[in-house]
Amino acid sequence: MSHLQLDRVSAYYGAFQAVADVSLNIEPCSITALIGPSGCGKSTLLRTINRLHETIPGARVTGDVRLNGQDVLGPGSDPVEVRSRVGMVFQRANPFPTMSISENVLAGVKLRGRRLAPKQAEQVVERSLKAANLWQETKDRLKKSGAGLSGGQQQRLCIARAIAVQPEVLLMDEPCSALDPASTAAIEELMVTLKSDYTVVVVTHNLAQAARVSDQTAFMSVDRAGQPGRLIEHGSTVSLFNAPTQTATCDYIAGKFG
């Protein structure tokens, strides 16, 4: 339920600049979609928010990211603490294969060092799986491995794992790109319900999806390969899709490139 502000964020992989000077204001309890052609730095930008970008050797970030006014990137901020407030769902579902479904959901909770009584743990599992719309399918097999679920179910398990710790922001990096339409619909439906509790930022290649689920849309693009990605336009989804102010946005939405 937090306000997220990006101010002149640039991201680098070694000498290569992937994102240049992105300033973005992300409202609490909304869904913001990041769209743009491949290689425009949307995923990189997303990964700067939870400081996952800098875990890659040679990668660094400049600029300011503020979560509820609090500096995320500065020296006084602990990346582990940031990541416990900013959950993330990845493009490929990545449940921990050696753990059962309920252990997966509780993984983040246990990392916080919170000791849960079995009853409490059950409640967390049930609440999270219900919120991720997975409870009905998994309630009889909570002790089984998460690797036995279908792709869409695994992705919802990852969402359950991310929201079990009740983060303030939920980042989703192309969460549906590896899923079939039915699973995609399930996840989209879920995103809309999650919006009442979380600030959601979603990277997507699917323009229709951005138009369906998001409140705000930010369009990023890159002039040509080797150049850093820039934010071209940002606004409410309705206005960006119906009345884009930039020609690049217009061309991208019309399917002329990307």
Binding site: V80, M88, F96, A107, G108, R112, A162
Partner: peptide, 15 residues
């Protein structure tokens, strides 16, 4: 070990 699992753990707030 798949890097998406490593990133998944880190993103969850693991040291």
């Amino acid at each position: 070990v798949p890097s998406n699992l490593i990133e998944g753990a880190l993103a969850l707030g693991a040291t």
